[in-house]
């Protein structure tokens, strides 16, 4: 499916009227890990995930293959746009290309507009109805991002309940958007539940990886992700708050690689990573069970979708 989505994206960019440099940069960014042009075909990509979800939820007679591919391309661009804006907010730089903050902001906004154009243009339902769904979920995601930005490990310390409340908004909203974009016979609460489980699992996996990544600032900025929330909880109970003290020292001292390694080893030994890994797998299993229960037509798309979330 990737080549077809890639073709649509290339074609969309070529005919978009965007400056040549913007088109070139967008394609370059879409070649990164986890994006639709990535060399690693095992990577999860939003474009493929959306296509299989649309195919599972709709009948070929109601939504054409072309529409589904164009909408999948729209989702791929939408997620790239939000990634770029997230990178500005989080001061991350995991891009292969060095980009100034202002470039990230401009590109993020432009791609958001192009994504909306792709998502609304090719729809059987009213464009206003379609836009209402997209608007609702993007607004929820934006609210979640806002709350997430202000949630830290400093006083008052973030809680597990707050973490799940925020990722319900900031991460699960995108999945709910994908599951609601086309009308389906499956009840909406079931689709929302599947989206929630996939969103929880994906966010937990990301947050575990980011604790150990030198390209992410989650640890340095004491971002209240669940691995850190639980590690701090352990530290406060057993080690007189050693972890929080060390994290606060980061701001007043030069950070050495050795110091970061010590902090990461400590987090691992608190059980926070084990706990979050088990939860991520648990939510993935919940999503899989619901998919298998409600889509028991042996559709090939179930297999593809499950392969992607596994």
């Amino acid at each position: 499916m990737r080549p077809t989505i890639q073709f649509i994206i290339k074609n969309t960019l070529l005919t978009s009227g965007l400056e040549y440099d913007i088109q070139k940069l967008t394609l370059q960014l879409l070649h990164q890990s986890g994006k639709i042009f990535s060399q690693n075909t095992d990577d999860f990509t939003w474009g493929e995930f959306s296509y299989y979800a649309f195919s599972l939820l709709t009948d070929i007679n109601t939504v054409s293959h072309t529409t589904k591919v164009k909408h999948a391309a729209g989702i791929e661009l939408l997620m790239l746009a939000t990634d770029l804006l997230d990178d500005v907010v989080d001061h991350d730089n995991h891009l292969d290309t060095a980009l100034a903050k202002s470039q990230l902001l401009m590109l993020g906004n432009l791609l958001l507009v192009e994504a909306l154009h792709l998502l609304i243009q090719h729809t059987a339902t009213s464009a206003i109805d379609q836009f209402a769904i997209i608007h609702r979920h993007l607004r929820n995601a934006g609210n979640g991002q806002w709350l997430d930005f202000h949630l830290t490990m400093e006083h008052p310390a973030a809680t597990e309940e707050q973490y799940f409340h925020i990722i319900q908004q900031k991460s699960c909203s995108f999945l709910q958007l994908i599951f609601e974009l086309h009308r389906s016979t499956i009840p909406l609460p079931v689709l929302q539940e599947i989206a929630t489980y996939i969103g929880y699992a994906a966010q937990l996996q990301n947050d575990i990886q980011d604790i150990f990544s030198d390209h992410k600032n989650d640890l340095l900025s004491q971002k209240a992700t669940l691995p850190l929330i639980k590690a701090v909880q352990h530290s406060n109970t057993y080690d007189h708050g050693w972890l929080l003290t060390q994290l606060q020292l980061i701001h007043s001292h030069d950070i050495t690689a050795k110091h970061l390694t010590t902090i990461r080893d400590y987090i691992r030994q608190t059980g926070a990573i084990d706990y979050c890994s088990i939860l991520a797998k648990y939510y993935t299993q919940k999503a899989k069970s619901l998919l298998q229960h409600y889509f028991n037509d042996k559709s090939p798309y179930i297999k593809q979708l499950i392969h992607l979330i596994d």
Binding site: Y238, D239, H240, Y266, Q269, D274, I278, K281, Y282, Q285
Partner: peptide, 18 residues
Amino acid sequence: LLALQFDGKMNIVSPGWK
């Protein structure tokens, strides 16, 4: 899932950075 996560792992006592 707990069994899978802990299977074959050597568990270390609370790190004791006190």
